Amino acid sequence: MPDITWEEPFSAESSNCFRLGTDANGNAYIAVAGQEETYLTDTREALHTLIRDIKAGKADHLL
Rank of each mutant, 00 (worst) to 15 (best):
F18A: 15
P2W: 02
T43Q: 01
S14P: 01
E7S: 14
E7I: 09
F18G: 15
N16T: 15
L63F: 04
A33G: 02
E13L: 09
L63E: 02
A31D: 09
G21R: 03
E7Y: 05
L50H: 04
R19E: 08
D53M: 04
I51Y: 06
A59P: 01
D42H: 08
R19A: 15
N16W: 15
I54F: 14
T5I: 09
A59T: 06
T41H: 02
T41Y: 03
A31K: 04
D60S: 08
E13S: 13
F18W: 15
L50C: 14
S15E: 15
R52H: 12
E37I: 01
W6K: 02
I54Q: 02
F10Q: 14
D60P: 00
R19C: 15
T22D: 12
E8Y: 13
P9A: 02
A28M: 10
N25V: 07
T38Y: 07
A33L: 02
T38I: 06
K58Y: 14
C17K: 01
L62K: 00
W6D: 04
A56Y: 05
D23I: 06
D60Q: 04
K58W: 12
E37M: 05
L47S: 09
T49C: 03
G57F: 04
F10H: 14
R19H: 13
M1A: 14
N25T: 12
T22K: 09
I54P: 00
K55H: 07
K55Y: 09
P9K: 00
T5E: 04
T22Y: 13
S11N: 15
D23F: 10
R52F: 12
G21M: 08
K55C: 11
E37D: 09
R52P: 00
T43I: 01
E13K: 08
D53A: 09
A31H: 05
I51V: 14
C17Q: 10
T22H: 13
I51A: 12
Y29D: 06
E7T: 14
A33T: 01
E36H: 04
A46D: 03
I4M: 03
S14L: 09
A59D: 11
A56R: 03
L63S: 03
T41A: 08
E13M: 07
L40Q: 05
D23R: 02
G34H: 03
D53L: 07
T22V: 13
S14Q: 13
V32K: 11
D3L: 06
I54D: 03
E13V: 13
H48M: 09
H61Q: 11
G34Y: 01
T43R: 00
G57W: 03
H48Q: 07
